[in-house]
Amino acid sequence: MPEHGSLLGETVIFTGTLKTLEVFDLVRHYGGVPVSIPLIQVNEVEEQTDETKMKNCANFDWLIFTSQNAVRAFQSKMERFAISVNEIPSKIAAVGTRTAAALEKIGFSVEFIPSVFSADVFVKQFKPTNGELNVLFLKGTLAGSIIREELPFEVKEWTVYETGAKRDSIDSLVDLLKNKRNCSVLFASPSAVRVFKEDAVPIIGWEGYTIGAIGHITERALIEAGATVDVKPEIYTLKELVKSLSKRKDEFR
């Protein structure tokens, strides 16, 4: 543990489901104490039509993934039905470097990533040169309609995972915020913001701790919920959010 650092004495709370402990190491590097208290839980959606839909993926020009959760659910279906990457010749688009890395880890080559890791920027920058396109968006139950509605061609959707509230985490989170002097709460999705607003805010409010948002969509959800966002990175990853938090705390020392 460092004897000094920009996050020394700071408890940094992650409210999303962590895909890697790399960000924990980064918090410790800056002297802070990382804590994972997920407010949402993610499960694969399984249906009787899954095998048919998996085999049909080969008929799409592009597959679009906006989260690692979608990649994980898709991989599970590939393994369950013994479908290899070679059987899916579609081009792949990913929103975010982490999502792209998850796809590449299972053998896909990612052909397109937007400059800002959000759906609203994706639809502005995703402009394949092909004419008529057959596109499939692999999504979760809480995904917005922007990709389907704003891309200039027909987009079919397949819901491969579901997101639900993990309300048994609220008591632990509230206790931490009540009893620790220096806390930062980091939000990686509007879904986590929604659960926090409904279950934690009536008890502790929005004051007394630092609030971080991974990107402008989550920032907007926080502002609409009544919060003041203290930290938002230019690059929308948890690692960059921790770096931005460290920089902010250093400036206020």
Rank of each mutant, 00 (worst) to 15 (best):
M1V: 10
E3M: 13
G9L: 04
E10M: 13
V12F: 06
L18D: 07
L18T: 12
T20M: 06
L21Q: 08
V23R: 03
D25M: 00
L26H: 02
L26G: 05
H29F: 06
Y30Q: 10
G31M: 06
G32I: 08
P34I: 12
P34Y: 11
V35P: 03
V35N: 04
L39T: 01
Q41M: 03
N43M: 04
E51A: 09
K53G: 00
M54Y: 00
K55T: 10
K55Y: 03
K55N: 09
N56M: 09
F60C: 08
D61F: 13
W62E: 13
W62F: 11
I64T: 08
Q68I: 13
N69H: 11
V71N: 05
V71C: 08
V71P: 07
R72E: 14
F74W: 01
S76L: 07
R80D: 04
A82K: 07
S84R: 12
N86W: 04
E87C: 02
E87L: 03
I88Q: 03
I88Y: 01
P89K: 00
S90C: 05
I92E: 03
G96S: 05
A100F: 00
A101N: 10
A102D: 07
A102P: 09
A102Q: 08
A102M: 09
K105V: 00
K105T: 10
G107L: 02
S109C: 07
S109P: 02
I113R: 14
I113A: 03
V116Y: 12
F126K: 14
P128K: 11
T129V: 15
T129R: 14
G131D: 09
G131I: 02
V135T: 15
L136D: 04
L138M: 14
L138N: 09
A143P: 06
E150N: 12
P152L: 07
P152S: 08
E154A: 14
K156C: 13
T159R: 08
T159M: 15
V160D: 03
Y161T: 02
Y161G: 05
A165H: 02
D168Q: 07
S169P: 02
I170L: 13
S172T: 11
L173A: 10
L173C: 08
L177P: 00
L177Q: 00
R181G: 02
C183Q: 02
S184L: 05
V185E: 08
V185H: 05
V185K: 05
V185R: 07
L186Q: 07
L186D: 06
S189I: 04
P190K: 03
P190E: 10
S191I: 02
V193P: 09
F196N: 12
F196K: 07
I204V: 05
G208H: 01
Y209N: 00
Y209D: 00
I211Q: 06
G212T: 07
G215K: 08
I217Y: 08
T218L: 05
T218S: 13
I223S: 06
G226R: 07
T228P: 00
D230A: 11
K232F: 01
P233D: 09
P233F: 10
I235R: 09
I235A: 04
Y236I: 09
L238M: 15
L238P: 00
K239R: 14
L241I: 10
L241A: 10
V242N: 12
V242C: 12
S244C: 08
S244P: 06
S244E: 15
L245C: 10
S246C: 09
R248S: 08
R248Q: 12
K249I: 02
E251T: 12
F252K: 14
R253K: 13
